[in-house]
Design a protein around this nucleic acid. Sequence first.
DNA 1: TGAAAAATCATCCTAAAGTATGAAGGCAAA
DNA 2: TTTGCCTTCATACTTTAGGATGATTTTTCA
Lengths: 157, 157
Amino acid sequence: MPGSANFLTKNKSIILYGIFLALLLFLLKWLELHFLIMSHAFEIYAGAIAIIFTALGIWLALKLTKPKTVLIEKEIFTPRSETFILNEKELMRLNISKRELEVLQLMSEGLSNQEIASRLFVSLNTIKTHNARLFEKLEAKRRTQAIETAKKLNLIP
Amino acid sequence: MPGSANFLTKNKSIILYGIFLALLLFLLKWLELHFLIMSHAFEIYAGAIAIIFTALGIWLALKLTKPKTVLIEKEIFTPRSETFILNEKELMRLNISKRELEVLQLMSEGLSNQEIASRLFVSLNTIKTHNARLFEKLEAKRRTQAIETAKKLNLIP
DNA sequence: TGAAAAATCATCCTAAAGTATGAAGGCAAA
DNA sequence: TTTGCCTTCATACTTTAGGATGATTTTTCA
């Protein structure tokens, strides 16, 4: 659609230009008689033609040059697995340590306390104390609640 | 920077235009002698001037007119909370009932079994049996694991 | 209408989670 | 060096979660 419309616009301009040219030629023919007599004024005549046609050229160029509209659609998908960005501000605000975050992470992956302990080479009790601190800081009663909150705050993916 | 550069470019063009004009006037003066004799060729002379100056006008316009490029940037954000689509195929495949999904949902929100029971006006034991079924179907050992799996399968937001 | 599936509830028991409290070693900043 | 924070571990206890099993009541669909 925009292609054919453009073509029409171009043709219109060309047709208009043709008509304008024809009219000008008639005008020139008429002017010729007057100006031929006083040949001193020939420079004025040529200058007039130059100015008129320069203006015509400018007008044509401006008319024919369509504003190039480039539409760039930036789609920013967040498939959450790819684009997780840790919210370090919240992390600092809540005073959650690296180790605690580590535990939280594993917790959210569905591991039991014992599994987390084994994974991190520490005792079950250590994990329990980490949990207690986490629940306190995240204002959670249960691990599931802690995970929910942490995900909302972008502390874990 | 681009402003002053543009200004320079414009001035250059105008200066060039002036020089070109001067040269053309000389050319005209010279041509005048030849064409005045054969006044029949005057139309050709005028036409040449018209064409030359039209071309000049077009060139000037194109030179002076900065490329009209309109950039439209559309940013389409997809914040995961807005775009949750339940994966009904997986739901059917795993034979998870409406009630079970409901329980799963509340579970993922961090509620305890007792809280879920109260919310749904059923007994704690009922929730436990639902859980057992869910864990079986989702191949999970714990509720946290069930939640993880369910989220991955887009069964819950 | 009658069988299958879904939802409900119960009991008993074990495992895991969570609470409370105390304590010790390490490390970095004041 | 001392203070504070992190990390670690322990013990004792309570609560919640989860497993196994059986049973009753709706609901649904052929």
